[in-house]
Design a protein around this nucleic acid. Structure first.
Length: 871
RNA sequence: GCCGAUGUGGCGAAAUGGCAGACGCACCGGACUUAAAAUCCGUUGGGAUUCACCUCCCGUGCCGGUUCGAGUCCGGCCAUCGGCACCA
């Protein structure tokens, strides 16, 4: 290993005098170590079957949410999660794991394209520039990524497989009998196009005129686009959809086994929005048509006094009375014109129009009027409701406004019937015929059975989740591997992949629903009779499976080899954990977007036998937001954005890393503080000066060190307590307390001269995952003079601690009287109860407080405290 | 409205039900220096009392409970932040 030393940075250029102001010469050695790691591919990890692969080691897959390479460059929020995973990755490496820790670029999609439009350059060029910039920035922080696995979703070699997965979706259906995705060939029904997981639908979609594209429900927030915050309106368009709703139940059920934050699980659960209830058929007066409604409260059927259809409901055309048509037409037009934003803003005031038609309540034959109102949504349930104004807030509001009858059918516990008006919880059925006297849950069961027996309805489950609108009218995205002929779509063959985007000088959105790809007249024509699909896939497509590609990024024959997938994703071992990425760190903003979409795709691939685990991400951790120094969210307009490059220039990469971790718990949001950065920078300088000192010529030279110095008990205790605590804290992702412990360590040995080399050695190892540059530099310098510093710190095994050295011979025990500390005594660490009790009672101060009182009880916790209860 | 998270010094924060405030920032004092910066050492939750380094009282958003003992557990509120929001 010695011959390799020549290669080490410490032997290259000297510091110039202008560097003397730096607390330690990080600006010299940090870039040198980064170059060293890159040159030697230090963090490269071999796949099974490759040279250098060590099958004896366990695997650990630690993943970051890869960034959009936007024009703005990195901000300090990125390195927070990235530093956490880097520490874990380096730590696991030192503990003998094969660590997969990759990085790549989510380089397709709106942000990249908008930046390109803004700067007037082709997105391929701006994306390449942005990627180069992001990569430089990340490398300046010294992350131990295996850069040989770098991927970019916008590269044909990558998106070939995104398109390939789309074809798998297109050629699959969800078999309700098996509750699994299966090849479309197992479908025996009449029209396969009606059950494909990727299908075309003509439906009202979220159209954003400003962005010139449609958006998924998940991308619309408060009626505005998630990107840019532009208004979104509904308009019917022909679009590609993915049948994520088929997996709704499994997406809920299979959350259970995941080690995810409870809040994210709930967010997904609520977004999927399962609700149990019943469908009830109402027959129409004077017609043989039926209206089917969905309700979660079939037990209130006797209280249904009117019905409401969504304004767009197709039955309206058939049932509306002649004289009501003008009003209905008018109301429908008004509803259609409203954007989602207006519709939610006006949510307070109920509106609607009577259709002139009546339905018959199946339970008692009563005539109930049928209205239309925009508070009933076409897309949920059946687009029709039975209104029970007595026990539903919205129905009550509506009934009051339009003076519709209100019939009380549920009595609230310990209230009169009249007081039960507007009561929406569980109570007792009244005025409900054969349901009278039943508590709500039993009434629900009874009426459900009753309806089913008579064919008047059935118990059913509904989800809020909608199918995923999967096409975008953009240039910078994956083209669909689909062609159209005679109004019919069909897949192109896998051998034609990747289907690359056409070269386009003008790639801007057309401003109409016509996608920009329509401008590529040559490309569009597939054959004499067939044309290509013009839409592109959304941003999320590439990020739905990138974690799989990292396992085998250069594979030209398969999206990931079976062997690599099984090894890194870790499934298939009976009795083991469910498998998947071992640790995934990222922000909460993807709770119902990327994280839901990726789970969906993964399940499809799992069902079809392409991956070995049902879930992609075993353990998920959300890092908190980093706020500006003013406590506000960082934003350009507020001028409180911190650029990591500046921090590195002034304090170094190690200080940036350390501060990001020392700020507070990873999951919490917290404000940035430059004086805080200075604090950790001072700490790192103290570590530097444990080894180095400045001579008269202001040059750094080795300080007084001793290889022989014996460590006293207190020093040994600090060393071993630190090994223990830092190791445990890293596992628990409590990086801030790990750093605090290392500060204690450094404070202890700052006071010691000459410095015991053994203590320095251990410190460099435990500090290495946090401050890799500084520790490698000092390690190399110590290695030039002392033994035991061979190779890289990063390659050292994590030290073991000796529990025997952790315990003190004597401990100070607080003595409480009635729960208040009155004295402290020093006793042997293993003093037993009797000895402690005697010592406590002997204390003069204790006597002072117990004098004249009766001692009722003495609580003794050996090694902890004594509490005397006196009265 | 519903769901979730969070409330501890001047600030970021620590505390298996067992000495509240580790560690860092800031502040103040001391050493070194012609001086400053840097560095090193030390004080710092609030209040009362004292010549004092002694001693006492109060203190983890608020109210109550469990316990020998509560920042931590239980019940009820309040505030801030985040998500969902006419989902029948």
């Amino acid at each position: 290993m010695l011959f390799a030393r020549r290669d080490f940075p410490m032997f290259s250029p000297f510091m110039s005098s202008s560097d003397r102001r730096k607390p330690y010469p990080f600006d010299v050695f940090e870039p040198q170590w980064q170059a060293y790691w890159a040159r030697n591919a230090t963090f490269r990890v071999a796949n099974p079957g490759e040279p250098g692969f060590d099958a004896a080691r366990p695997k650990y897959y630690v993943l970051d949410m890869f960034p959009y390479p936007s024009g703005a460059g990195l901000h300090v929020g990125h390195p927070e999660g990235y530093t956490a995973t880097d520490i874990i990755g380096r730590f696991k490496r030192m503990n003998g794991y094969n660590v997969l820790h990759p990085m790549g670029w989510d380089s397709f999609g709106l942000p990249a394209e908008q930046y390109a439009i803004k700067t007037g350059q082709h997105p391929a060029i701006t994306t390449a520039q942005n990627v180069a910039r992001f990569k430089t920035q990340l490398q300046k922080i010294g992350f131990g990524y295996d850069w040989s696995r770098e991927i970019a979703t916008s590269k044909p070699a990558y998106y070939k497989w995104t398109q390939w997965i789309f074809l798998k979706l297109y050629n699959a259906w969800f078999n309700p009998a098996t509750q699994k995705a299966e090849p479309i060939s197992t479908y025996t029904g009449p029209d396969p196009d009606r059950v494909r997981l990727a299908y075309v639908s003509e439906a009202p979609v979220n159209w954003c005129p400003e962005l010139g594209t449609v958006l998924a429900n998940e991308e619309v927030i408060d009626g505005k686009s998630e990107v840019g915050g532009f208004p979104v309106e509904r308009r019917p368009m022909r679009q590609w959809m993915l049948r994520i709703t088929a997996f709704a139940q499994r997406l809920i059920d299979e959350l259970e086994g995941l080690d995810w934050p409870q809040s994210i699980k709930l967010l997904q659960q609520n977004w999927i929005g399962r609700s149990e209830g019943a469908e009830v058929h109402f027959s129409l007066e004077g017609s043989d048509r039926k209206i089917t409604v969905f309700t979660t409260r079939p037990d209130t059927l006797f209280g249904a006094t009117y019905m409401v259809l969504a304004p767009e409901h197709h039955l309206v055309d058939e049932i509306a009375a002649e004289d009501q048509w003008p009003a209905i037409r008018d109301y429908r037009a008004k509803t259609a014109r409203k954007s989602d934003l207006e519709r939610t803003e006006l949510a307070k005031e109920k509106s609607g129009v009577f259709t002139g038609a009546y339905a018959l309540n199946p339970v008692n034959g009563e005539k109930v009027p049928i209205w239309i109102a925009d508070y009933v949504l076409l897309g949920y349930g059946t687009g029709a409701i039975m209104a029970v104004p007595a026990h539903d807030e919205r129905d009550l509001e509506f009934a009051r406004k339009f003076e519709l009858p209100i019939k009380l059918v549920v009595q609230a516990p310990s209230k009169t019937l009249e007081e039960s008006r507007g009561f929406c919880d569980n109570g007792t059925a009244v005025n409900s015929g054969f349901l009278d006297g039943l508590p709500t849950p039993e009434a629900k069961a009874r009426i459900g059975a009753w309806l089913e027996e008579r064919g008047l309805g059935k118990r059913t489950v509904n989800f809020k989740l909608r199918d995923w609108l999967f096409s975008r009218q953009r240039y910078w995205g994956e083209p669909f591997p689909i062609v159209w002929e005679n109004g019919q779509h069909r897949a192109i063959s896998e051998s034609e992949l990747p289907l690359t985007s056409p070269e386009l000088a003008d790639f801007k959105p057309t401003g109409t629903p016509e996608p920009p790809l329509s401008k590529a007249t040559e490309w569009v024509r597939y054959s004499a009779t067939a044309t290509r699909e013009l839409n592109t896939m959304p941003q999320w497509a590439g990020s739905c499976w990138y974690y799989l590609r990292y396992c085998d990024p250069a594979n030209a024959d398969r999206f990931v080899s079976e062997e690599a997938e099984r090894y890194w994703m870790g499934g298939g071992k009976p009795g083991s954990k469910p498998g998947g990425v071992d640790l995934y760190v990222g922000g909460t903003e993807h709770a119902v977007l990327h994280l839901l979409y990726a789970r969906f795709w993964h399940k499809v691939l799992f069902d079809l036998g392409y991956v070995s685990t049902p879930e992609p991400f075993q353990r998920l951790v959300n890092q908190g937001l980093i706020m500006g120094e003013d406590g506000q969210k960082m934003s350009k307009s507020r001028g409180n954005v911190v650029n990591p490059d500046d921090v590195i220039t002034d304090y170094g990469a190690d200080a940036l890393r350390l501060y990001e971790m020392f700020m507070g718990p990873l999951e919490q949001s917290k404000p940035w503080s430059m004086t805080g950065v200075e604090g950790v920078s001072r700490f790192l300088a103290r570590v530097w000066r444990l080894v180095m000192q400045e001579n008269q010529a202001s040059e750094w030279e080795m300080g007084p060190l001793s290889a022989e110095a014996a460590l006293d008990k207190a020093q040994q205790r600090v060393i071993h307590a630190t090994i223990k605590k830092v190791g445990e804290d890293i596992e628990a992702l409590s990086f801030n307390t790990a750093i605090a412990q290392m500060m204690v360590y450094v404070n202890t040995f700052t006071a010691v001269s000459p410095r015991p080399v053994a203590a320095l050695r251990t410190l460099l190892i435990v500090l290495n995952p946090f401050a890799p540059h500084l520790t490698e530099e000092l390690w190399a310098r110590l290695g030039a003079k002392f033994g035991g510093f061979e190779g890289l710190v990063a390659d050292q095994p994590w030290p073991e601690y000796d529990p025997a050295l952790l315990v003190e011979d004597e401990v100070e025990i607080p003595i409480q009287v009635n729960g208040k500390v009155r004295d402290r005594i020093v006793v042997a660490k293993d003093a037993d109860k009797a000895a402690l009790e005697a010592a406590a009672l002997a204390s003069p101060k204790v006597r002072e407080f117990t004098g004249g009182k009766t001692i009722r009880k003495i609580v003794v916790v050996p090694g902890k405290l004594v509490n005397i209860v006196a009265a």
